[in-house]
């Protein structure tokens, strides 16, 4: 059911923008299963190739088994505190929430004029970046990493575009052309690592807990506590992203910063 609602959006996006292709989506699966190899809490660590994804069992066209996350059960927790409390308790190295954005779109996909776009993503991103003093069109260069809602590989590619990392229609080529090339694309050592934890595809999707997990992962990264899957932190800012509800109508984005990122 979830696969067929996401696939509707991905297919409609392909119709409109010619992207993502099946191979481009497969790159997301390779990246996130691969990132999960370094995360001891992940449930689906795998060293796989684009061919492995393409040859995996078809679920609903064009999603294959390895394009889909594993439905899981798990828990995640965040400890939130006010600025006053952080100072009062002398918390060392806190991560600050500097921007929050949430938006809804039509719950029923059949109501949407543009089925290939999740407007809730776009509005939530713009609101969160604005609150954090960041810019939608420059966000790729203003943050160190993004933990995205990659329940299905194709949706992560669309998120690159909707969250402002790359222009519409270029999400697929962003991940594909820069395949494992350091300094480019969303890979671990790329210009903007996306889902360095492995994301939902690599970690497993415990529905309801995953948004907390993604936010916690981004916080660990900003603190330098992510362990083996730690990415390079230079700007001191990260975002976490979660979507849900019927037809993934609800989107939420949190911008976080460490001490450096507040400057």
């Amino acid at each position: 059911m979830a696969a067929s609602s996401y696939v509707s959006m991905v297919n409609a996006h392909f119709e409109e923008f010619g992207n993502p292709t099946e191979e481009q989506m497969a790159h997301v699966s390779v990246k996130n299963h691969g990132n999960a190899m370094l995360n001891p809490k992940s449930q689906s660590p795998m060293e796989i190739t684009v061919e492995d994804v393409m040859n995996s069992r078809i679920i609903c066209y064009p999603f294959k088994m390895l394009d889909c996350c594993l439905y899981s059960e798990a828990s995640a927790a965040l400890i939130l505190a006010s600025e006053d409390k952080v100072k009062e308790l002398n918390i060392e190295n806190p991560i600050w929430i500097t921007g929050v954005g949430a938006a809804n779109t039509d719950c029923f996909i059949g109501n949407r004029e543009d089925m290939g776009r999740l407007y809730s993503n776009i509005y939530a991103a713009k609101a969160a970046y604005k609150m954090a003093g960041l810019e939608y069109n420059k966000i790729k260069n203003q943050i160190d990493l993004a933990e995205l809602h990659d329940a299905f590989s194709g949706q992560e590619v669309i998120s690159y575009e909707e969250l402002g990392f790359v222009p519409f229609g270029e999400g697929g080529s962003w991940i594909e052309k820069t395949f494992e090339k350091p300094g480019e694309g969303p890979w671990r050592e790329g210009e903007l690592p996306c889902c360095p934890s492995g994301g939902l595809i690599g970690c497993g999707h415990a529905v309801g807990a995953t948004g907390i997990m993604s936010t916690g992962e981004a916080a660990l990264q900003l603190r330098g506590d992510a362990g083996k899957h730690q990415v390079s932190i230079e700007k001191g800012r990260a975002i976490s992203h979660s979507i849900g509800g019927p037809g993934a109508a609800y989107a939420a984005i949190i911008v976080m910063a460490n001490k450096e990122g507040l400057k």
Binding site: A3, S4, V7, S8, N11, A12, E15, R57, I58, I59, C60, Y61, P62, I109, G110, M115, G116
Partner: peptide, 24 residues
């Protein structure tokens, strides 16, 4: 048709129909 997919994995109620199309 606005958008469609072909389903290869489904619940028991529709398993005999696989593969079948669905669409908006």
């Amino acid at each position: 048709i606005n958008v469609s997919t072909i389903v290869w994995y489904t619940t028991s109620a529709f398993i005999k129909a696989v593969p079948y199309g669905i669409g908006f």
